[in-house]
């Protein structure tokens, strides 16, 4: 009797396991095809001189680390890494500060929170292409409203995207304009979940506005702050569309990011071996960057 029931139980256990396996198999297959295969493919080609044009006639050859040494010694690539890091740091800092300020502002509004929230969110809802093109129009040296206003005020005008002094700053500005609302949305939601009682207790305990911000608000939303910074860091690090649409990496490589460099030297020239090596380097950099946050999140 007893053995009978244990066998039954074991059978049920096996069945549950089989059902579970059946359920996750499709996901695993999709993941393997869409993620693991390209990853292995990229890693493999990064050690070859695979070039689409040339390899129509002769097969790719194994060249060990040559792609990597070429890449890392290329001053253009080095500048692109520096540009990317500089862009990421500036954009994330400004987006976090402005987004947080917006969230605090809307959160303390007594009326019209919903309207304000929608208005502030609009830039984030626009497609990047639209954002890039409308900024290009506004900043156009010929018919742009910005230069017209500057001229009317008697101030010097710039060719914003072609001037080495302004192009990089403009890209940061546009990215902050578009992505600060994302930070705002995330932090606004976090602010809403801070218990009102803590603010009241702090007021009675003798804290002013600034002290409440540092002792109550920020500690309560610090996880959201960290998550937000991580998401924005990863996203800024992969910046491509705005650069490609507005400057193409110029002038004088001053706005070229890692992705733009890979596009110029790996994709446009169909030199996929070299491009793959660049992609691997970038993946490693992103992983290193985000590992700090991921470790924190796990703790």
């Amino acid at each position: 009797m007893r053995t009978n029931s244990t066998t039954k139980l074991r059978n049920a256990d096996v069945q549950t396991k089989r059902f579970g396996l059946g359920m996750i198999t499709p996901t695993v297959i999709v993941l393997l095809v869409m993620t693991a295969y390209p990853l292995v493919f990229t890693l493999f080609y990064s050690f070859t001189d695979y070039n689409l044009l040339r390899n129509l006639r002769q097969p790719a050859e194994f060249i060990a680390l040559k792609n990597y040494t070429d890449l890392l010694t290329d001053p253009y690539f080095q500048q692109s890494i520096w540009n990317t890091v500089k862009f990421t740091i500036l954009a994330v800092i400004f987006e976090m500060i402005i987004g947080f300020a917006m969230a605090l502002f809307v959160n303390c509004l007594k009326r019209g929170q919903k309207t304000m929230r929608t208005l502030l969110l609009l830039p984030y809802l626009l497609p990047t292409v639209t954002v890039a093109l409308s900024w290009r129009m506004m900043l156009s040296p010929n018919y742009g409203i910005v230069n017209q206003v500057l001229t009317a005020l008697g101030l010097p005008v710039f060719n914003w995207f072609s001037d080495i002094h302004t192009a990089f700053g403009m890209l940061v500005l546009i990215d902050v304009w578009q992505s600060a609302p994302f930070v705002f949305l995330l932090l606004y939601a976090a602010l809403q979940s801070v218990p009102q009682g803590q603010y009241e207790a702090a007021r009675i305990d003798g804290a002013g506005r600034i002290k409440i911000l540092f002792y109550v608000t920020i500690p309560n939303i610090k996880n959201s702050l960290a998550l937000c910074a991580l998401l924005r860091t990863i996203d800024s690090f992969r910046l491509f569309d705005k650069v490609n649409l507005l400057t193409g990496g110029g002038p004088a490589n001053s706005t070229s990011t890692i992705t733009q460099y890979l596009y110029n030297y790996g994709i446009s020239s169909l030199d996929f071996g070299f491009g793959s090596a660049g992609a691997v380097v970038m993946t490693i950099l992103v992983l290193i960057l985000s590992s700090v946050y991921i470790k924190r999140a796990i703790q």
Partner: peptide, 20 residues
Amino acid sequence: ASKDRDIAMVFQSYALYPHM
């Protein structure tokens, strides 16, 4: 203001600071 009234209050929800 509350902080200048020299009062203290105990809340139903305790309202302790969770990070301290």
